[in-house]
Simulated scan of single mutants.
Amino acid sequence: MKGETRRLEIWRAHRARLIDSVVPLVGDRGTAEDVVQDAWLRFNRMEDVDDRPIQRQPVGYLYRIVRNLAIDLMRRRTIERSISPADSPIVEHVADPRPSPEREAIDRSELDRVKEQLATLPKRTRIAFEMYNFGGYTLQHIADHLSISVGMTHLLIKQAVACCMEAIADGDD
């Protein structure tokens, strides 16, 4: 009982410094507190035997336990991160990121209708729309290329988008 009381006093006296010493290893204070708590459980379970390090240098022994637990934790985290997701049984329950065949067919049909609608637009409107949406050009650059104002460029693109939306909506009927 006397040894347990002494170990408790040592642990209480050094607890804050133990936590501070482990934070750089584990990365955050909450995890450091957990490591120090686990160290206390191990430290308190030690038997009082005269030739053990706990009797000769109990403070150093407590710091060693804390350090070893922190290193073990970091090794475990490294191993867990290195396991590929394909090795995990959870992967079997993840939804397939590819769209369903039905969704692909619907999307392909909508795209065909949009292409048909774009083909019916006046050349200048189609060029403005394609430059803006597919080429990533600015309104000013498109306006300069077509020799029109920025406002007119915006209007042409807006008209093209409206036609595309109409083609998609017509297919939903």
Rank of each mutant, 00 (worst) to 15 (best):
L118I: 03
V94Q: 12
N133M: 09
Y132A: 05
V26Q: 02
V161K: 15
P85N: 10
P24R: 09
M1N: 11
M152I: 14
V150L: 00
P97T: 03
A119C: 01
D112R: 15
T120P: 11
V35N: 00
A95K: 10
I157N: 00
D20E: 10
I142Q: 00
A167Y: 01
V49F: 03
S84T: 11
A16N: 05
M74Y: 01
A169N: 13
D112G: 13
F43L: 00
A16R: 08
D173P: 12
V36P: 00
P97K: 01
T78C: 07
L18G: 04
T5N: 14
H154E: 04
P97M: 02
N68C: 05
L156H: 14
H145R: 13
Q117A: 15
P58S: 06
K115T: 10
T31W: 04
P85T: 07
A16P: 03
L139R: 09
H93D: 05
N44F: 14
I83H: 08
I83P: 06
L121Y: 02
P85C: 07
I65Y: 00
E4L: 13
D20W: 02
C163L: 11
E102P: 04
L41V: 15
I142D: 00
N133S: 13
R56A: 04
R15N: 09
S21P: 09
A86R: 15
I127N: 02
Y137V: 03
R108I: 12
E166M: 14
N68K: 10
T31Y: 03
T138I: 10
R76A: 05
Q159P: 06
T120N: 13
V36Y: 04
D20A: 12
A128L: 06
I83L: 11
Y137K: 12
S109G: 12
S82H: 10
E92Y: 12
S109W: 07
P53S: 07
H14Q: 08
V26D: 00
R7F: 04
Q159T: 06
A143P: 11
V36I: 06
R45G: 14
V66P: 00
L62H: 11
L18W: 01
I90V: 11
G171Y: 11
T120G: 13
L156F: 14
T120I: 09
D170A: 09
V66H: 02
L73I: 07
V66W: 00
H14L: 09
L146P: 04
G60N: 01
L73D: 07
F129V: 02
K123G: 13
D144G: 09
D112M: 14
E80S: 05
F129P: 05
G27I: 07
M131P: 07
H141Q: 15
E92S: 15
M1S: 13
T31L: 08
A167M: 03
Q117H: 04
L25G: 01
N44G: 08
R56G: 01
P97N: 06
R15T: 02
E47R: 14
E33F: 07
H93E: 08
P85Q: 13
E92G: 15
Q159V: 08
A160D: 02
D112S: 15
F134E: 10
A39T: 03
S147F: 12
